[in-house]
């Protein structure tokens, strides 16, 4: 069953067309990776899915209803570390929880629950500026899980961190997915996509060039890994 569906979506920034009649649907419970070169429209697609920006044409539905009804059901993790580094991890999470109306003891319990989940309990009272890059990324993900979303949208969640921290995040995301949360994310790391995703969508110049299960796509192009498929599609 599809959780979110984009139909004939077009989006222009000033005069430049970023998305051109884009059609895609995300299946519930899946981990979908959106890949493509820089400027392909990946981030714009994610922002439209999260109802963060308006689009010029088309229709976005969430479980068959308007995307506007999805408030609080979607978690969004931006590419930037969207945290206040002068506050502690706990203070940050408390603030983001309060935005969703989770307050008092309920907030404390939820924070403790998600922190345990991502392995951040120890340093949660320390200021974010003292965190390593990987920890900041984990906290960034934690903040999006506070409202217990059905769909988690992530824009390059592992950018700028080392391989160990990245693998750590991949493990967390697998755990999150096992809890029944659908994940859509973009990344430039094909190994990461291969490790995590069951389904990929390749976007180029605002259009979907290829989509499907990773193994099926690799077989279709007779390539042993996703990186080779990516290079092939990109040069096409």
């Amino acid at each position: 069953m599809e959780i979110i569906k984009l139909e004939d979506i077009s989006k222009k920034y000033k005069k430049e067309k970023v998305l051109n009649n884009l059609n895609l649907s995300i299946e519930s419970g899946q981990i979908t990776g959106i890949i493509g070169p820089n400027g392909a429209g990946k981030s714009t697609t994610l922002s439209i899915m999260a109802d963060l920006i308006p689009y010029d044409d088309g229709k976005v539905t969430y479980r068959g209803s308007s995307i506007k009804d999805s408030k609080g059901k979607i978690g969004f993790i931006p590419q930037e570390i969207a945290l206040y580094d002068s506050l502690s991890g706990f203070e940050n999470l408390k603030f983001f929880a309060s935005l969703y109306g989770i307050k008092g003891n309920k907030a404390k319990d939820r924070i403790s629950e998600v922190c345990q989940y991502v392995g951040l309990e120890e340093k949660i009272k320390s200021k974010v500026k003292t965190y390593s890059g990987g920890m900041k990324r984990r906290l960034n993900i934690t903040a999006a899980l506070l409202n217990n979303p059905e769909l988690l949208i992530m824009d390059e969640p592992t950018v700028g961190i080392d391989i160990i921290a990245r693998n750590n995040i991949i493990d967390i995301l697998k755990k999150v997915n096992k809890q029944g949360i659908t994940i859509v994310f973009t990344s430039h790391y094909m190994i990461e996509i291969e490790k995590l995703c069951t389904y990929i969508i390749f976007i180029k110049n605002g259009k979907i060039v290829e989509k499907g299960k990773i193994d099926e796509i690799k077989n279709k192009y007779s390539k042993s890994n996703l990186e080779e498929v990516y290079t092939l599609l990109n040069n096409k």
């Binding site: 999260a50 109802d51 963060l52 609080g72 969004f76 945290l83």
Partner: peptide
């Protein structure tokens, strides 16, 4: 402005604020 520069605004916007 930090809210916009670090995209914290996306979290704020996605809540009921």
């Amino acid at each position: 402005r930090k809210d916009y520069n670090t995209q914290i605004i996306t979290r704020i916007k996605m809540s009921s604020c």
